[in-house]
Simulated assay, not measured.
Amino acid sequence: ALHDDHAAGPLLDPWFVVPARVADALPALLDADREDPARLRLDGAALARTALEDAAAEAAAQPGTTWGDRHRLHPLHVLDDVPGCASPFAVDVGLGGDTDCVRSTSSTPGVSDRTWRGSVARYVWDLADRDRSRWNVPFGASGVPGDPHALDQLDAWVDARTTEVVTDWDLLHREDLPHPEDLP
């Protein structure tokens, strides 16, 4: 029954597929088994060795393939579940990082290498000198498809770079942008 269709739609697939749930729970299971070896009778070292050997064999079968070649951005959008609609941010870029790093991104191991989760913002605030503060968001500063700023930070976000934060009113300028309804 755990493998049956959860009927919650593709947006929630990562939270309901069994391999992803087991992968999330595995560190806790291995720690619990280390404290009480009779509990689950898992050989954590052997499991890790086997997983590493499997990954090495798969990598050897695909020479020259990088992490970013396999781990491609899969931007989820609320419109993805609406029949007849498509995500306004159809981008295909390779990503670095994994779940436990600054460039935190994640896929659903055992299901897909498409990366659907990453940082929603990165901020570096210099409290002594506000002008040295930096930030970045995935995609861009605007959430409006077609807006010039809809994807203006994507490359920097992919590379884990940041963008200057401008707070000096004398340096800011108004942009006369089209109304969202007038965008392509």
Rank of each mutant, 00 (worst) to 15 (best):
R114H: 10
T115R: 00
W116F: 15
R117P: 01
R117Q: 11
R117C: 05
G118P: 05
S119A: 10
S119G: 07
S119T: 06
S119R: 11
V120T: 14
A121Q: 13
Y123R: 09
V124S: 11
W125N: 08
W125M: 12
L127C: 08
L127A: 11
A128Q: 12
D129W: 04
R130W: 14
S133K: 03
S133Q: 08
S133V: 02
R134T: 04
W135M: 12
V137F: 06
V137T: 09
P138L: 05
F139A: 12
G140N: 12
G140C: 12
A141D: 15
A141I: 05
G143P: 03
V144S: 12
V144F: 06
P145Y: 05
G146W: 10
G146A: 03
D147P: 04
P148C: 08
P148W: 09
H149F: 15
A150S: 15
A150H: 14
L151N: 06
D152S: 11
D152N: 14
Q153L: 09
Q153N: 06
V158N: 01
D159Y: 00
D159P: 00
T162C: 03
T163E: 13
T163Q: 13
T163G: 00
E164C: 03
V165L: 13
V165P: 00
V166P: 00
V166S: 01
T167H: 02
T167M: 02
D168N: 07
D170Q: 09
D170G: 08
D170L: 05
L171C: 02
L171T: 01
L172V: 05
L172S: 00
